[in-house]
């Protein structure tokens, strides 16, 4: 479904991605783990065309999207819940979800919002509340819900567990598994919380300083001694 071939991205003179090749097949949850500054978020943003890849190609459903504008990439069916959630703070939860549905067919709105409210029941309660007054976990749920309102075929999630309590992280990961299972939605998940991400994902990639250094199934990577040493040290093993 999504295919990256030798992608290089620069921030000015700094090479953030140094030839990344990666595949996401339909219906999969793929996770990308790595330390701070490895280029994980840059990779997600490059898929959305901002910053644009300087070299290499990005294909979605076989079509080259490397040079497209962000909004037209999104209209092809890629949604992103961006890093830092980026909720519209003064707008209500409902309005946030409405804006998420910009690229979707208006006929689906009522059933789509019902699906989001079923997935994250707290959002129904918070419906008329301003986005900026939600807790971090609720904002993350809103960010994912908002992305889902666009009826994407591929969902990009940038560190959904960032800054959240373990309980909430569990809830959010359960929701991601649920949308993948029930709706067959393809997910590319960027995470620092390697343990949870690898348990959830079908496959995973490990990034280091702009390169993919390891890949394999979630279980393989979890068992890999290098991964354990680098990313799961002191983590939960049970």
């Amino acid at each position: 479904m999504l295919n990256l071939q030798g992608v290089h991205t620069f921030y000015g003179p700094i090479e953030a991605l140094r030839g990344v090749t990666l595949d996401v097949a339909k219906g999969e949850i793929v996770t990308l783990i790595g330390a701070n500054g490895a280029g994980k978020s840059t990779l997600l943003m490059t898929i959305c065309g901002r910053p644009r890849a300087a070299e290499g190609s990005i294909r979605f459903d076989g079509e080259d999207i490397t040079r497209e504008e962000t909004f037209s990439i999104i209209r092809r069916g890629i949604a992103q819940a961006p890093e830092g959630r980026r909720i519209f703070a003064r707008l209500t939860v409902f309005e946030n979800l409405q804006i998420g549905a910009t690229v979707a067919d208006p006929g689906h709105f009522a059933s789509d919002i019902e699906k989001v409210f079923t997935l994250f029941p707290i959002l129904r309660k918070r419906r008329d509340q301003r986005g900026g007054t939600l807790s971090g976990g609720e904002q993350q749920m809103l960010s994912i819900g908002r992305a889902l309102m666009g009826r994407p075929r591929l969902l990009l999630l940038d560190e959904p567990s960032l800054g959240l309590a373990p309980m909430i992280v569990k809830q959010i990961f359960a929701a991601i598994a649920e949308i993948n299972r029930a709706q067959g939605l393809t997910v590319l998940l960027v995470e620092q919380n390697a343990y949870h991400a690898l348990r959830l994902a079908h496959r995973g990639y490990v990034m280091q300083t702009g390169r993919i250094v390891l890949s394999g199934s979630g279980a393989e990577l979890l068992a890999n001694p290098e991964v354990r040493a680098a990313y799961l040290e002191g983590g939960v093993h049970a």
Partner: peptide, 24 residues
Amino acid sequence: LPVGRAWEALREDEIACRALGINP
């Protein structure tokens, strides 16, 4: 209307708007 909502969304966060397929 969608265009008015898009204005308000743009005021709040332009990057989020792009990520939601709004043409800024």
